[in-house]
Write a protein that binds this DNA or RNA. Structure first.
Lengths: 241, 241
DNA sequence: GGGGAGCTGTCGGGAAGCTGTCGCCCTACT
DNA sequence: AGTAGGGCGACAGCTTCCCGACAGCTCCCC
């Protein structure tokens, strides 16, 4: 934690999560609350409509595979009731992804299950930012001389442009967003990898190792930004010691 | 995202969308809002007239197939009330296209359903530009040595004139308008293809591939402008390094 | 209204890049 | 010095991307 990113609003973001799988819905709600949002869950389509009517969410996460009134039905009724609240859809991998794709034009977005929590949160932030107003300011994360532009996906150490793979990008973004907090490997794993990822192993170490090489290489004088906290995890921050 | 395109006005554009199919009307309204416009929807002819009277739109999107007072009726009464607000008509493919053509006097325009969102927005911008003032300033997009004149549809790489197909033109325009942001294939698909397009596959990849050949061929020294961001999407921009 | 030209999307093979596992070595702390 | 944890080279499997070839369609011209 630390600085409040500039796209964060003053009042709390109100999020409605709709998924018939309670663990998933609760997972998302919990992460959102941890970000300081207000989150409400619904496990059925009917409940979703009820909650939406009372709660007036700023944004909705909507699973398309619901028993009873399905996701499309919920969407239609939401829209019919006149609300323009942006929606981020969840869909099974080989499910209705195609149909969904057609819905994302407005500024809505969608994600394929199983997703990674950070990825979902990133999309929510993007959608909120876009729908916030005409003056859609860039979202740039900064830690020391390291910058990450979330629109252009450009990551720079000073002036030097880094070329990161998707996984590296996600891990670094999470580290940057939480800087100067120390994160455990488990936290990183839980946020950046899809939920249910079997990945026992040392994937996190490995990605961090690859990141370090890219962040610090070529930079003779440059002090390392990623620090190991032995027995606990990693931090991203300026020298500090 | 980022810079304000040069044709954007200082005050917000006020758009009235009239379509009896709420999802379509909302879709258009949402996209317009993301462009920073103010948008209001109406689902019936009567409502349209009411809203027009209160809201004083700068431009109207009007479906001709309305229950009750149909599009022509709405148009007549609008004109009868003395307003000269430009109108962009929507019509079914084999509907009354001919009759419509006769109506598009002045700066009006029309589009056949199902349309592509970017195409509609482009027409709206054009109509606004034309009706804006006597000196209709050209709208020229520019990225590096690539230019696109939206009036003449001329696209040039440096001095070399490119010959693009309609689809290629639309994809390139979207990339140029959003440059230097990275766009996912889903975004491109959703904006450039007609809504409801069952867009399986790799159409976007294919068009990009064809675009690349036209943009970069023949240019010995010319550095490529379209870049792949693996695992994410495409960007149009100068080398960047 | 028949023929042709150009446009668009599907299929599929092949190349390139990304990711995670294994396992050894090194480091930091006891 | 011993030990547990971390770093990271190497590799293999998999995903993603590129693009040639082709077929259906549309539009236009004769």
């Amino acid at each position: 934690m630390g600085r409040v990113p500039q796209y964060e609003r003053v009042e709390k973001v109100r999020l409605l999560v709709v998924d018939d799988d309670p663990p998933i819905a609760d997972l998302v709600a919990t992460v959102a609350r941890y970000e300081g949002w207000e989150a409400v869950t619904a496990y059925t389509g009917e409940d979703a409509l009820r909650r939406a009517a009372e709660f007036h969410p700023d944004i909705v996460v909507l699973d398309l595979m619901l028993p009873g009134v399905d996701g499309f039905g919920v969407l239609d009724r939401l829209r019919a009731s006149g609300t323009m609240v942006p929606v981020v859809f969840l869909t099974a991998r080989d499910g209705v992804a195609d149909r969904v794709a057609g819905l994302t034009r407005g500024g809505d977005d969608y994600l394929v299950k199983p997703f990674a929590v950070e990825e979902l949160m990133a999309r929510l932030r993007t959608v909120l930012r876009r729908s916030a107003g005409p003056a859609f300011q860039r979202s740039v994360l900064r830690v020391g001389d390291l910058t990450m532009d979330e629109d252009t996906r450009e990551v720079r150490r000073g002036a030097r442009l880094l070329s990161l793979t998707p996984t590296e990008y996600e891990v670094l973004r999470y580290l940057m967003r939480k800087s100067p907090a120390v994160l455990t490997k488990a936290q990183i794993l839980d946020h950046v990898w899809e939920y249910g990822f079997g990945g026992r192993s040392n994937v996190v170490e490995l990605v961090v190792s690859r990141l370090r090489r890219k962040l610090d290489e070529t930079d003779e004088g440059g002090s390392p930004l990623i620090h190991t906290v032995r027995g606990f995890g990693y931090v991203l921050r300026q020298a500090a010691e």
